[in-house]
Design a protein around this nucleic acid. Sequence first.
DNA 1: ACCACATAGTGAAGTACCTTCACTACATGT
DNA 2: ACATGTAGTGAAGGTACTTCACTATGTGGT
Lengths: 152, 152
Amino acid sequence: MPPTRALDGLLALSALMTTDIQRFEREHGLTTARVHLLWQLGAAGPSTQRDLAEALRVTPRNVTGLVDGLVGSGHVTREPHPGDRRATQVTLTAAGSRFVTELQRSHQDLADRLFGDLPEDRLVAFVAVLDETLERFAGLMGETGEQEGTAS
Amino acid sequence: MPPTRALDGLLALSALMTTDIQRFEREHGLTTARVHLLWQLGAAGPSTQRDLAEALRVTPRNVTGLVDGLVGSGHVTREPHPGDRRATQVTLTAAGSRFVTELQRSHQDLADRLFGDLPEDRLVAFVAVLDETLERFAGLMGETGEQEGTAS
DNA sequence: ACCACATAGTGAAGTACCTTCACTACATGT
DNA sequence: ACATGTAGTGAAGGTACTTCACTATGTGGT
């Protein structure tokens, strides 16, 4: 069995997942970039735009635009940061929280539908390879990539 | 072991692969969309823009723009289609072919580095889960997605 | 208290990718 | 010959990104 079979399968699955995620996003009138921001906000709680920019690995200027859109759609609010008058604090609204919750639910649901029926031993073996590959990949990126030390 | 572990691992790996692919693309002064077009052209041989649009699942208008860019960078040529004067035939140049070849080589190389050392039985088990998941996923998309019948 | 310097956010301008709609040139069946 | 369909592109517009310049604010040193 050639190693490419594994990589090809991963890429194919990756493409399917992306398609499925985008379907979900468009059902809710959102886009990938904005959903990432909401997800991050759900994970980290109220954040400055600076923090969001670092977490999402995009420029602060870009976050301004994304937040503009999400304020417009009512998913987040922009409030003055208590204690630093330069910064604004971005916070999920009720609608934003609801979306994040539903996103998590949908994620869980997909995982169950895809892997719920897989026997435990096969699941464990699969996840083990996944984890090892993840580690190995990180190692490979470190060799050649060598960005500034802002690792994720 | 919760099924989410598998999905999360896949998503993480997917993100890493995307990053790595984009690094490769930028090293060559290309973008994801253009590389997809080149890849498709390498797989299918000289094609009309219409064909490319269908294969890439984007609008014909968009293909016009992508081909414009690739003609500019010398990766493809636009020639009149023999036998249909409405259509143009997009063909890889020598440079375009070279890029596609290197892309395949790089792909192969990555697969070897990631999975080359994995024992055969674990590889087989991994790929089996991958394939089953792919099938199951296609089934799920058919249930809810239900686009017009242009299945891939 | 003051000043130099760093930091948070945004306006302006530009690129790439993508869309829809309208239009031209060509193909094809009757 | 004529109607109808198909290939490609112009025009206009949206989102996601970038860099650069600029304002407002925080902070450490003297």
